[in-house]
Measured scan of single mutants.
Amino acid sequence: LTDEELVTMSVRELNQHLRGLSKEEIIQLKQRRRTLKNRGY
């Protein structure tokens, strides 16, 4: 997933992508998404 996709994707879509990932990967992705959102994309 690109940063842009992460930010513009709805939470529902995101959760579908996260299905099948490990807990660590999910946590990393969610942190990255929060960081991007805070940057004001």
Rank of each mutant, 00 (worst) to 15 (best):
L1V: 07
L6W: 00
I26H: 04
S22Q: 06
D3E: 03
L1Q: 01
E25H: 07
R19C: 08
K37L: 15
H17D: 00
Q31T: 10
R19M: 10
K30R: 11
D3G: 01
I27G: 07
E5H: 06
V11M: 09
L6P: 00
V11D: 13
K37A: 05
L21S: 03
G20S: 08
E25P: 00
E13Y: 01
L36R: 03
L21I: 04
L21C: 04
I27L: 10
Q16N: 11
R12Y: 10
M9N: 02
E24H: 10
R32L: 04
E25Y: 06
R34M: 06
E13Q: 09
K30F: 15
L21F: 06
K37N: 05
T2A: 04
K23F: 10
I27S: 10
G40E: 14
K23P: 12
G20Y: 08
N15C: 15
E13K: 07
M9W: 00
S22P: 11
T8G: 13
N38R: 07
L21A: 06
K30T: 08
R12L: 10
L18D: 01
V7H: 05
G40T: 06
T2N: 04
G20F: 09
R12W: 09
R34S: 08
G20T: 09
Q28N: 11
K23T: 10
L14Q: 01
H17R: 13
R39Y: 11
D3T: 01
T35R: 13
S10Q: 03
R32V: 01
I27T: 09
Q28T: 09
L6D: 01
Y41F: 13
N38Q: 08
R39E: 15
E5I: 07
L6E: 02
G20L: 08
T35I: 15
T2D: 03
G40D: 13
L18I: 10
T2S: 11
L18N: 02
R34Q: 11
T35E: 15
S22R: 07
L21P: 00
Q31R: 11
E24L: 10
L36K: 03
L21W: 05
L6N: 00
S10K: 04
L1K: 02
R39A: 15
L18W: 05
E25D: 09
L21Y: 06
E13C: 03
T8Q: 14
L21H: 05
K30I: 15
Q28A: 14
R34V: 07
L6R: 00
R34G: 05
I26T: 07
T2M: 03
R39K: 15
L29M: 08
V7K: 07
L14N: 00
N15T: 09
Q31S: 11
Q16G: 06
R12S: 12
R12V: 10
E13N: 04
H17S: 05
R19P: 03
L29R: 01
Q28C: 08
L6I: 04
S22L: 05
M9H: 04
L1D: 01
Y41A: 12
S10Y: 00
V11Q: 11
Y41I: 14
R32D: 01
I26M: 08
E25R: 07
Q16Y: 10
E24F: 09
N15A: 11
E13A: 08
T8K: 15
G40V: 10
I26P: 00
V7M: 14
Q28F: 13
N38F: 06
Y41Q: 14
R33Q: 08
L29Q: 03
L36F: 01
R12T: 12
M9V: 03
L14H: 00
R19Q: 11
Y41L: 14
V7Q: 07
Q31M: 10
R32Y: 03
L14I: 05
R12P: 07
K30L: 15
N38S: 08
N15R: 15
R32N: 01
Q31E: 13
Q16M: 13
R19F: 06
E13I: 05
Q28D: 09
G20M: 06
G40S: 11
K37F: 08
L14M: 04
E5D: 10
Q28L: 13
H17E: 02
R39L: 15
V11G: 06
I26Y: 05
H17L: 13
Q31I: 13
E24N: 09
V7I: 12
L29P: 00
R34H: 08
D3F: 03
R32M: 03
D3H: 01
N15Q: 10
K37I: 14
T35W: 15
T35V: 13
Q28S: 11
V11F: 07
R12G: 09
R34I: 08
E5P: 00
R33T: 04
L21K: 14
E25K: 10
Q16I: 12
Q16F: 11
L1N: 00
V11Y: 09
R34C: 14
L1W: 06
E24P: 09
L29D: 01
E24D: 11
Y41W: 11
G40M: 14
R33G: 01
V7A: 09
I27M: 12
I26D: 01
S10V: 02
T8E: 09
K30D: 03
R39M: 15
S10R: 04
M9T: 02
R32I: 03
I26R: 15
K37P: 03
I26E: 04
E4S: 08
T8A: 14
I27C: 09
K37S: 03
T2E: 03
K37D: 04
R34T: 07
I27Y: 11
R39N: 15
T2G: 04
S10N: 07
Q28G: 08
E4G: 06
L18S: 04
Q31H: 09
R12K: 13
R19W: 04
L36D: 03
G20P: 03
D3I: 03
L6M: 01
I27V: 11
G20R: 07
Y41S: 13
L29E: 02
T2P: 03
K30H: 09
K30N: 05
L36I: 06
T35Q: 14
L18F: 14
E24C: 06
